[in-house]
């Protein structure tokens, strides 16, 4: 504290330490919050086509076409340590070649302050529902789950699954695409 510059250094260092301490306290204050909440998912149209996948090997793979109803009120999840949510819908199913397939079908970024009350009716999905073979036709147990990442101001990035899943089956016949 004997000179102007050493005083500036001491004050700035102490202010930064206090700020770091408060940030850690903010992280602690939200550490044990349960971020699960209910979501209701329903499928309206479920058809499956056999189409050449030009993204990979050009073989005819199964492509699912589904539309969903999705309702979830995520606004109670926000607090002073939640910057934004990354919400995504994924399908899980078993085929003869893989015991677990996971395909992301839809996602959305919700920043704090934006409308977090999701209510979609007969919504088309954002991403293609490709199988890596012929596992979708006649598959009786495909489970849709809504899930989100919580992006905090300070702390760890957590993955949370919604309470409530939806299972559906694909028809036994391909829908022939009109040429």
């Amino acid at each position: 504290m004997h000179s102007f510059l050493s005083r500036a250094n001491a004050v700035a260092a102490y202010a930064l330490s206090v700020l770091a301490c408060l940030t850690f306290l903010c992280f602690l204050s939200t550490l044990f919050i349960d971020y699960r909440t209910e979501a209701s998912i329903n499928t309206i149209r479920t058809i499956v086509k056999s189409i050449s996948n030009y993204n990979s090997d050009r073989k005819a793979n199964d492509l699912g076409h589904i539309t969903v109803d999705l309702r979830a009120d995520l606004s109670p999840l926000f607090n002073w340590n939640v910057k934004q949510l990354f919400v995504y819908l994924y399908a899980e199913y078993e085929t003869s070649s893989n015991s677990l397939n996971q395909v992301i079908l839809w996602d959305k970024i919700i920043r704090r302050g934006e409308n977090a009350n999701l209510n979609f009716k007969n919504m088309n999905l954002k991403y293609y529902f490709w199988d890596d073979g012929n596992g979708l036709k006649g598959n009786k147990n495909i489970t849709l789950t809504l899930s989100w990442n919580i992006i905090p101001n300070a702390g760890c990035l957590s993955h949370v699954n919604a309470v409530g899943q939806h299972s559906f089956s694909f028809p036994d016949e391909y829908t022939i695409a009109k040429q």
Binding site: R7, A10, Y14, V18, C21, L22
Partner: peptide
């Protein structure tokens, strides 16, 4: 000066 600086910053923190 040091005491006052720490007091002000802690208080506002």
């Amino acid at each position: 000066a040091e005491y006052l600086a720490r007091f002000i910053i802690t208080l506002f923190g």
